[in-house]
Amino acid sequence: MRYLRIYKIFLKQYLKTLMEYRSDFLIGMLSFFIVQSSNLIFLTLIFKRIPNLNGWTFEEVLFIYGFSQIPRGLDHLFTDNLWLLANEYVRSGSFDKYLLRPINPLFHLIAERFQPDAFGEMIVGLSIFGYAYHLLNLSFTGIQWLLLIIAVLSGSLIYTSIKLAAGSIALWTKRSQHVLFIIYQLSDFASYPLTIFSTFVRMILLIVVPFAFVAFVPASVFLDKPYIPLGILTGAIVAFVMWFISYNFIWKRGLQVYESTGN
């Protein structure tokens, strides 16, 4: 409860500063809008040459692509400070601050930053998703919408867990932006049908860095072409396991190491 109150205050303040830099906010959003649109243009251009991508129609690929941007944007919106943890907080010594306050340091870290650039991704994601939903003549039942929400939240949690794990490495090495970057890049695979990739890539995305569960696995369920049975439940379980591992075994261990080495 107290944490919720603190988060609300941070958010309120953040939104105030946002209004102050309204043009920056719009530009940032526009930028991520462009990033997403350029991928969309790529997809459109190539689908002019082929009827389907390994059995996935243009509409279905759009559905997966749009879906993938929603959890990605959600995570981006709330946990962007993990990038700064990876890049500079440990090196510059600012990280001490989080250890000097009587609240959970990870909460403090995450609550402090809110990244509205992510709206660019979310708007594109939702629009493409909606467009594909329309093109595919889908009509979800109440249960399906609920499952969709669960899938999106699980997807975000997978993103956050992976970012936390990679960002925490900075507690050992002072800087881990590059590790985080490389792992985050893997999420590019998550926006396309998994079946177009080689077995090796698929295994990595299912087991090692489970980005497959962010969009493809749940989307395949909604498209009635389930890739694995109980895709959404599996995705949720994967998300919780990832979070558990990242938080307890990497972040917390990293804090201990930081406490013994300092900066």
Binding site: I46, H178, V179, I182, I183, D188, F189, I196
Partner: peptide, 21 residues
């Protein structure tokens, strides 16, 4: 090194897509 390695990941995605096309 990691950074470059990370950047190459994008190539692989595109590679698979072209291959299928």
């Amino acid at each position: 090194f990691m950074y470059f390695f990370g950047m190459t990941i994008g190539i692989f995605v595109v590679y698979y897509i072209w291959k299928i096309i």
